[in-house]
Every structure is written in C-alpha cells, then in structure tokens.
Write a protein that binds this DNA or RNA. Structure first.
Length: 593
RNA sequence: CGGGAUGUAGCGCAGUUUGGUAGCGCACCUCGCUUGGGACGAGGGGGUCGCACGUUCGAAUCGUGUCAUCCCGACCA
C-alpha cells in the first residue's frame, strides 16, 4: 500500500472526549471515528486490525473443533419470551418494531437463536458434542458507553455455544475452550489472567473471565488474586478468609441504649468505643422494586452482584433516605438511616420485606444492632433460637438469623486467599473473554431436546464462550504504546512495516525504498511505502503514531549502503544493509505463521 | 436514572459577561521554497454558531423549551 493512497487522517491532537489510552490513540492515529455515543466507524486501519484478531480467533476455534456459522442480529421477541429474557434483560436490550408492529430486538447475545437452531437440527446424542460459533456485531444499550471501543453499544464479538449430553462432556469442552482462549490472547500479544466470575444475566453456574491486567482506568473490573496459589477471581465473585478480629462484645446483658447522632458506622464506633466488627450493619436495598435488607458485619461492604444473586434479582439500588423513613413509618417505627435493624419490619410499597444476611454476622456475639429507633441502638444482642421477627425482640435481645444466610461480602485487599490462606492482592482488568457453563438454563425452558441412547428425551447441556473482538483490539493498545503512539504486537498490526524514503525527490532513495517495499510484498509482508512528498518529521511522527512494528528509513546513509531500521516496540535503531533489514522483517512475519 | 459540564469549519479552541451579522491554530486546495523528528511565505475553499420558539430594528450572544455529547456515581454476556 502506498501511504499517499492509504485512507487515514492522523490528528495533531488527542480528541477532547477521550479518557483512556486506547481511545485517544485510535482516534488520533486515524483508526476509528465516533458516529454516535458508543458507536464507532472502523476505518481501514482498524478494520485490518479487527480482521487480524478475528482470524486468530477463527483459526484457534477451528483448531479446537468448533464450526463457524452466522446468525441474524435481528431477533424476534417470541424466542426471547421462550427463554424468559424478554422481560428480564431490561433496558440494555435494543428493542424495535417492524412495520407490522411486531416486536424485535438487536441481538446482545445469541443463546435463544442458537438454541432454536439446535432444537431444529440436533435430534440425536450421536450428533454431539458440537460447538458452533460466529463473529458478528452485537448490540447492548449500555447505560453509559465509554472508553471508546472498550465499552460500546455496538461491538464485534465472537460467541460460541457448545452442546453436550452430560455435565462431564460440558466440562471437557469448557476446558478445551479455556485452552483455546489462552492461545488466542497469547497470539494477540496479550497477557491475560483467567479468573472466576459471576455469571450475571447469562446465567449458569461456573464461569470464568479472561482479563487483560492493567493498572489504568481502562480496567473496569477489580481482580483479586493470590501469588502463592492460582486463585483469582473477579470482585463480584471473589471470596476470602478474614483476619482474626474481635467478634464478641463485652456487654453482660442486652439493652437498648442512647446513641445520639450516630448515623454512620464510624460515629457509632467512636461513641461506643468499639471496633466496627461488633456491629450488625443493616442496609436497605430496592431490588426490582422490592425492599431487601442486607445484614453484614459493620466493617465490611456488600457486593451488590452477590446480593442480587441471593434473591434472584435483576435491578438493584440502595434505598433513598426518604424511602427508608417511609418504610419505618409503614411498619410503625420512627427512625432514619443509621438506626435501622431487621426486627419488626414486615412490608413496604406493597411487598414483603426480604432479609438476607452475610455469613460474617453469623458468628457475632453480644453485638450491636439498629433497633429502628432514632438515636438508639441495641447492644449485647445475640442470635436466638426462638421465632422473633417483631418489635418484641428489641427488648429480649435475642432474634433469629434471617432465613437466607450467604456470602454477600465484597473482598478487600489485606484479606486472605480462600484456598491457601496467603494474602490476596488486587489489580484491575479489562474483560476480553469469558466462558460459561450454562447447563440446561436455556435448553430446558425452550424445550430444546434430543433423544439419548435409550430413546429418552433430554435437554442439551450447554456452554457459551465469548470474546470481544473489538474490545480485544482496543485492549491491546493499553499496554502497547508510548508518548509517540501505538506499538502494535506484530500479529495484529494493520501493516507489518513501513518503508520511508526521506526525500521522494531523491531518485536513488526512491529506487532503494521501492526495491525494499517490493521485496517485502513478495515475501508476504504487509508493507506500506510512504511515498508522500512530506518532510521526514511528518512521516516519522505518523509512523510512530500509527504504530508500524518495523520501520525502514532510506536516507542519506544509502550512499554508504545502509538504511535505518527501527523496531517500534523497543525503539531500537540500527544502520544496516537494505537486504538485511528486509530479511529481519520477512523472518519475523514468517515466524508468525 | 441522580450530580456536574459542554454544543461555534474535519480536529482543537476563542468570541457569549456588555446584542451590531463569525474568528484563530491544525488539517484541506494552489504556487513558491524546504527535506532526518509534526518547516516557512503568499493565495484559497469550507460554518443556517446543535435545533425550535420567543424578545429585539438587529441574536452565536438574552429568555423558554428541546436534542445531543462528555465527566462522576449507579449499572455491565
């Protein structure tokens, strides 16, 4: 490709609306242009990068035994009603109506469609296992698109779906995919960590995410990991061992005492001269419009995804102070946030109040708890054996544990690995891929079944496996850049090399540059010849910004038989013979394959 | 959806306080000159100032409404 003909416009400045490196670089270097919020044009350079990533994914998926197909992204409402997700998926689903006023959506993922395909064509256990995948655009109406290609509303994704006859078969395929993913990201020049995660709206039991570890804002997920063993997990799923701390109070009897103006845990600790670990903290949430109380030890935070899972909810938010006061009033109390406890609370807004406790509260003895009275707390309370869920237990000092006691706790740095007990570390990551064991979550409700050896009807045991193609390409920029521009890994760079004649008017320089360029092309190197009549500074700046892995500059040195060879990644430069420069590039590119 | 901000040429911005008919840098076109890290000179093209309504002799500027975009929070296969 001649640089004079390459459709690219580099900018002198970074775009003002970009926050993270990949977004800034990709816009400034002329790879992408925003069309509207969260929706981008992929310009020729970007499209080349995306196709490289796609092809790596394609090769490894095919090697792993999967088959590529292509499903529509326009999907009918009916299928989504079968799976139950039309209601559940919420506002993130891009919905539309056709001219007959029939409801449709643009696919955010394709479990429903693939399950319907399987239902039609996968009738016998003899046809399994099978893994089908596609690479196409996906649509998610994100609440807040940001970070350029890292969180768009339209993005390119590879999604694969496996069908097995047993959990064992699924687990085998899951492992197969995990290995394929590891290879894929490695080939793309990315270091990823496979971490345990929550399965979210997709559902299912076991899932892992592939994270590009970064210490920048681009990493939207907290990842906890252990250096001593291989434990690692997304914060929405991580568990830990807690350090020893005081969990039993010194009160000899239960009583309600005055604790004026102790609206926060800190103020209460200060007033009572106790550690926060002696307090049962009661948080009021609104989950799918229903009131939910979350009980957790005072020094710990609630992980909202865990709470959502505990009650099977979709939408969660903390209740407002107004709602809490209203809830108090309805149940015959007069209290405000800071003095709330679970006892005696029955209903709000037409719903029964659900109480969920984190495991940390179970072991507390002689603890402190809100008693729904302003400026008062109960101290010396204990979990009792009797049924006690009304106002009476305020005075008895004994109340039952809620029916739901589970892990709701957000893991924090300084806690210990659940497997080996060593200190956990925390870092941030960009999720570029994930794998799920779905089981029969979709096949059962959608009646997607086959006949087993005994002629008996069985639902498929499914798995699904995603890779964000456009996100992976953008994530690759995050660790690969310097102040002058992008440093693409060779495998996904839009072009492998650029050849720059310093002066296009110098016949000898042009001749040598063209010879090198042709040699590179002949040997399968994707090369660009910068034939523009520009000053060398302009060409160097553009070459660095665009991020060609190799640069061969033909200048005055040619009279001594040398060209300048620069490696973008290391910025190492050397003067060598033209043939030698070409040879290095050809070898590197050949070794890719 | 809560809080904050911004919409003026492809990009980055000034002009808005105090109303008078739109400007700067980069990019783009032409000519000259220049050629090892985003040169220089001269000339040129490009904007219904987000949109609508209103106030006014006159609106980028004032008022009302609306749309869009960005940031923080919440959310996220």
């Amino acid at each position: 490709m001649k640089m004079s003909k390459l459709f690219v416009q580099t900018l002198r400045e970074f775009p003002s609306d970009a926050e993270v490196i990949s977004h800034k670089m990709l816009v400034r270097a002329g790879y992408i242009r925003k069309l509207t919020s969260g929706v981008y044009n992929y310009l020729p350079l970007m499209w080349r990068v995306l196709r490289k990533v796609e092809n790596i994914v394609r090769e490894e998926m095919d090697n792993a035994g999967a088959q590529e197909l292509l499903m529509p992204f326009v999907q009918p409402k009916e299928l989504w009603e079968e799976s139950g997700r039309w209601e559940v998926y919420g506002k993130e689903l891009m919905r539309l109506r056709d001219r007959h006023n029939r409801e449709m959506c643009l696919g955010p993922t394709h479990e429903e469609i693939i399950t319907a395909i399987a239902r039609d064509g996968l009738k016998s256990y003899k046809q399994m296992p099978v893994n089908l995948y596609q690479i196409q655009s996906k649509f998610r109406d994100e609440v807040r698109p940001r970070f350029g290609l890292l969180r768009g509303r339209e993005f390119i994704m590879k999604d694969a779906y496996s069908f097995d006859t047993s959990q064992e078969g699924l687990e085998k395929e899951y492992e197969n995919m995990a290995q394929a993913y590891t290879k894929i990201f490695k080939r793309c020049g990315l270091n990823t960590k496979m971490v345990q995660s929550d399965s979210g709206a997709i559902g299912g039991s076991v899932s892992h995410e592939f994270m590009v570890i970064t210490d920048t804002d681009a990493g939207e997920n907290d990842v906890f990991y252990c250096d001593a063993c291989d434990y690692s997990a997304n914060s929405n799923h991580a568990i830990s061992k807690l350090p020893e701390t005081k969990t039993s109070g010194d009160w000899t009897s239960a009583q309600v005492i005055n604790t004026p103006n102790t609206h926060t845990i800190e103020e209460l600790c200060e007033f009572l001269k106790i550690p926060a670990s002696l307090i049962v903290k009661t948080l009021v949430y609104i989950i799918d419009k229903k009131p939910v109380l979350a009980l957790i030890r005072g020094d710990k935070q609630v992980e909202e995804t865990k709470l959502l899972n505990a009650v099977g909810g979709i939408d969660i938010r903390i209740a407002t102070a107004g709602e809490i006061q209203e809830m108090m009033k309805v149940n015959g109390f007069n209290a405000e946030p800071g003095f709330i406890g679970p006892m005696g609370l029955k209903e709000y807004n037409g719903y029964q109040i659900t109480v969920v406790a984190d495991e940390t509260v179970k072991e507390l003895k002689n603890f402190v708890i809100g008693v729904n009275q302003k400026d008062k707390h109960g101290v010396g309370y204990n979990w009792g054996a009797g049924i006690c869920n009304d106002f009476e237990c305020v005075n008895s000092g004994s109340m039952d544990l809620p029916k739901i006691v589970t892990d709701l706790r957000l893991v924090e740095a300084g806690e210990f690995c659940p497997t080996c007990g060593q200190p956990l570390k925390v870092t941030r990551g960009i999720e570029v891929g994930n794998i799920f064991q779905l089981g029969t979550k979709y096949s059962a409700p959608m009646n997607a079944v086959y006949l087993d050896q005994n002629g008996k009807t069985q639902p498929y045991v499914m798995g699904c496996y995603g890779i964000g193609i456009s996100r992976t390409a953008a994530a690759a920029v995050e660790p690969h850049y310097d102040e002058n521009g992008i440093k693409w890994p060779l495998a996904i760079a839009p072009y492998h090399a650029v050849v720059i004649p310093v002066s296009t008017k110098d016949e000898e320089q042009m001749k040598v540059a063209e010879d090198i360029y042709k040699t590179l092309l002949k040997h399968g190197v994707e090369a660009v010849l910068d034939d523009r009549d520009e000053r060398p500074g302009v060409k160097f700046k553009d070459a660095d910004l665009i991020g060609f892995p190799y640069r061969i500059t033909v200048g005055k040195g040619i009279s001594d038989g040398v060209v300048e060879f620069k490696v973008r990644e290391t910025c190492e430069m050397s003067n060598i013979a033209p043939e030698q420069a070409a040879e290095i590039v050809i070898t590197a590119v050949t070794n890719l394959k």
